[in-house]
Design a protein around this nucleic acid. Structure first.
Length: 281
DNA sequence: AAGCCGATCAACCGCAATGTT
DNA sequence: CAACATTGCGGTTGATCGGCT
């Protein structure tokens, strides 16, 4: 036996409320007060489920509801509260007089969340998206260190080892002072805009060697640079998805897409011999 | 003018917590 | 204490609208 329905589905209207229905509900609650939602629709002469009446009242008809656009201050408050509370919309709404949890949730999902993503901020953690946004800068600085091995030891505890290995492959291992480093230095100084990211950048990043890129060769190559105990071999299950999502708390697809759009990760430029499919197992 | 598409938001659904018998 | 009812909450859906082609 499943859970009994909250109301009898037969004869119960669904969908948008009419002005007449709204008026009936308002009149009833004005006289009797809210509550007893199960019997309310019958007493008020409404062909609605009690749950639907409660929702309509709390989210739309309540006299203390403030409607209209969210002010800048309200948005900032929501962001602040969300960073502490997460998706506790009712708790956030309790601190924003006149706003309902539903309204705040909708506004978050349609406006604020997208704005944060565009700004390179993870809307879940409220931290800068270091994994994608500044990965090239981070790794550029890392690989240009003269004492790379010791730095990598520390970095490997912070980053997905697969990221480090892939980045190692993409960097000019035999000649670290080629166009790659200048490209990376540039990245350190100038943030990449999304429009810039969409531009192909292959011409300045083409390596000269024509080695084939296989899984084994990759590991062998990396072993020349960093000792194996610093960087473990690429895991068999490694793929770009894991790389893209590693430090991110939210697996939501559009976060990934937005991150990729604004990311400077691919500004390394792939060597000609780099076969992306080699990473797709 | 018509069709498509993305954004928005009201409303719904399912589940969990809480209250009542 | 168990069973059931009610309420609250967060995620999701779908109708609507406006911009674009």
């Amino acid at each position: 036996m499943g859970r009994s329905p909250c109301c009898d589905k037969n004869g119960v209207k669904k969908g948008p409320w009419t002005a007449e229905e709204d008026q009936k509900l308002i009149d009833y609650i004005r006289f009797h007060g809210p509550g007893n939602w199960r019997i309310l629709p019958k007493n008020a002469g409404l062909q609605r489920c009690g749950k639907s009446c409660r929702l309509r009242w709390t989210n739309y008809l309540r006299p203390d509801i403030k409607r209209g656009r969210f002010s800048f201050e309200e948005e900032e408050t929501i962001i602040q509260l969300h960073s502490v509370m997460g998706n506790k919309w009712s708790a956030i709404a309790a601190r924003l007089p006149g706003r309902t949890d539903n309204e705040i949730k909708n506004h978050w999902n349609t406006h604020i969340r997208k704005r944060l993503i565009r700004s390179g901020i993870d809307p879940v953690t409220h931290s800068p998206r270091l994994d994608l946004l500044d990965l090239s800068s981070l790794l550029g600085a890392l690989f240009n260190q003269p004492n790379f091995s010791s730095v990598a030891t520390h970095a490997s505890s912070l980053l997905n080892p697969d990221v480090l290995r892939l980045a190692s492959l993409l960097l000019p291992l035999q000649n670290p002072n080629t166009v790659y480093s200048s490209n990376l230095d540039q990245n350190l100084q100038t943030p990449i805009t999304s429009s810039e990211c969409s531009q192909p950048q292959a011409e300045s990043t083409t390596p000269t060697n024509n080695e084939t890129t296989s899984f084994e060769l990759m590991n062998a190559r990396l072993d020349d640079v960093a000792s194996a105990d610093v960087l473990p071999p690429l895991s068999e299950s490694f793929d770009l998805d894991s790389l893209m999502s590693t430090p991110m708390s939210s697996p939501q697809q559009d976060s990934i897409e937005a991150g990729a759009n604004s990311s400077s990760f691919f500004d390394f430029g792939f060597p000609e011999d780099f076969i992306l499919d080699d990473f797709m197992f």
